[in-house]
Amino acid sequence: MNWRGIWAIYKFEMHRFARTLWTGLAVPVITTSLYFIVFGSAIGSRMSEINGIDYGAFIVPGLMMLSLFTESIFNASFGIHMPRFTGTIYEILSAPLSAIETVLGYVGAAASKAMSVALVIFVTAHLFVDVHVEHPLLMLLYLVLVAATFCLFGFIVGIWAKGFEQLQVIPLLIITPLTFLGGAFYSIDMLKEPWRSITLFNPVVYLINGFRWTFFGTADVAFGTALAATFAFFLACLGVIWWIFRTGYRLKS
């Protein structure tokens, strides 16, 4: 393994994030606060509890996941798209790095950043509500798994995209709607049929509920099912990346 090479990419990416550290941190703090002010006060006052959980606390895992998804995709896709765009990818391609090592560098850095943002949201949420995490270790592991999965997905987007606007398309047009419709801020049990059953086809439901389970020990779907679904998505992304490096798709001519 070329650990130094992986570390070099990781440091480079983290350095890139550090250049925008303050906006990078201010944005999640401000949006979280806004969510609490809007959802917490406006809706929470009418709907104090969901499944016996205080509404304010209930939305924390959803908020963290929403940011984790978008941050992961954006950071990872930008990280690999930028060198493709400027041409500096030549150096990565000519370095003694295997596909796995390249991906570890970029995805590792993007996942670190995305998890930091999710944790900042977690901390900010404590200013507004009491959140008690039932399974802290599982919660962290789940955070890592989801961040890794969405960073892999972002890496694919960054290679697929032909321009910077396409980097925005996937998060804005697919992930954000799926997250809002996937029970980030409500329990899908509150939906009427057939909407509840239809919602079960939304993969984000499993991601959010798996994460929520680590907080409260209860969720709309069983933790095992959620974990399996997340893992399946993770493997699918790995498969696509393996194919990208094998064929050189949009990386090499």
Binding site: G5, T88, P96
Partner: peptide, 29 residues
């Protein structure tokens, strides 16, 4: 192998010395 490509492509926001150190470590040194 070392390569100096035809095009001048580099990470333009990086300081000179970091980009050169980066290259060394990227190649596992």
């Amino acid at each position: 192998i070392g390569l100096v490509p035809q095009e001048l492509t580099m990470d333009v926001f990086e300081p000179l010395i970091s980009t050169v150190s980066f290259s060394r470590e990227l190649f596992g040194r």
